[in-house]
């Protein structure tokens, strides 16, 4: 059948050509196309590829997000100190400029790949893919991605990680989840960091931070800790150990895990028949 005379229109496909249909021709020879595709679908495809790499080597990948200065690198230093003997750790560092954070991690004897984004405000799946090529995944149990310090953009980009951990430091104020709902909704775990400052900043109430988080319909656990004093660190380390054990059993069974932010969300919005 040809595409010019109409002999290819059948009862089965005629609905596509009616107004609102995917192949409907509007006035003036225009053609209307219904797409329903996420703008980030290219990124998401790359992220799925990254996740498959990580799963093949049974690596747990954790994406750390926060505002600049909330203590992501300090948390990593303390985590390496505590777990470095039992788990093989590597870190991908995202910053606009400098290798400072990567050098702090390397000083602890852990491999770190620095991504300098220039002026880009977030990491995306392609950058992380490139960084993954610099790592031998068969020698790694636990991969941290320290995202660019920013409470806005990093939340929108899937990197291929299994879990999102968002840090909120005490000096920032306890209402951050209400101010940055997109970021805190994306968290599988929220860490209230610099808890050693709580006595000096009584206006920060951990209970209020947690309530703001629940207002986002998030069931993510919320832990207080201080990387400086070690207070509360044990619960974070337990979370990491349990999370890793659970994921490795899933990976061994051929499945994986994505950050909890409604895995069915995209399917809800993007109907089938997308390009």
């Amino acid at each position: 059948m040809c595409d010019t005379c109409g002999c290819n229109i059948t009862d089965a496909n005629a609905h596509l050509l009616r107004p609102g249909g995917r192949l409907h021709q509007t006035g003036e020879g225009r053609e209307a196309v219904t797409v329903l595709r996420n703008l980030l679908s290219e990124n998401d495809r790359q992220a799925a590829h990254n996740r498959a790499h990580l799963d093949r080597h049974q690596v747990l990948a954790v994406n750390l997000m926060s505002s600049p200065g909330a203590g992501k690198t300090a948390l990593l230093e303390a985590t390496i100190e505590a777990l470095g003997d039992t788990l093989r750790i590597a870190v991908i560092e995202g910053d606009l400029e400098t290798e400072n954070d990567a050098e702090r991690i390397r000083a602890r004897g852990v491999e770190a790949i620095q991504i300098t984004t220039g002026s880009a405000c977030h990491l995306d799946a392609h950058m992380v893919h490139q960084a993954l090529h610099g790592l031998d995944l068969s020698t790694i149990d636990l991969l941290f991605v320290e995202n660019v310090g920013n409470l806005v953009c990093p939340a929108s980009f899937d990197l291929g990680q299994h879990y999102n951990v968002t840090l909120l430091s005490v000096p920032e104020g306890d209402d951050k989840p209400a101010k940055y709902p997109v970021m805190f909704r994306a968290a599988d775990l929220v860490l209230l960091t610099k808890a050693d400052l709580l006595p000096y900043l009584p206006e920060f109430q951990p209970g209020r931070a947690e309530r703001c988080l629940r207002d986002l319909a998030s069931a993510a656990p919320c832990l207080s800790l201080s990387a400086r004093t070690g207070e509360g660190l044990a619960a974070w380390l337990d979370w990491l150990r349990q999370t890793r054990a659970l994921l490795v059993s899933q990976q061994a069974a051929g499945s994986s895990r994505r950050p909890a932010i409604q895995p069915e969300g995209q399917a809800l919005h993007a109907g089938e028949g997308a390009f």
Partner: peptide, 18 residues
């Protein structure tokens, strides 16, 4: 559960000069 509100979708296109 969020039913709507996090969409970032290319929903529809009108093409011309086919």
């Amino acid at each position: 559960r969020l039913v709507s509100g996090d969409e970032l979708l290319l929903a529809h296109l009108e093409l011309a000069d086919i």
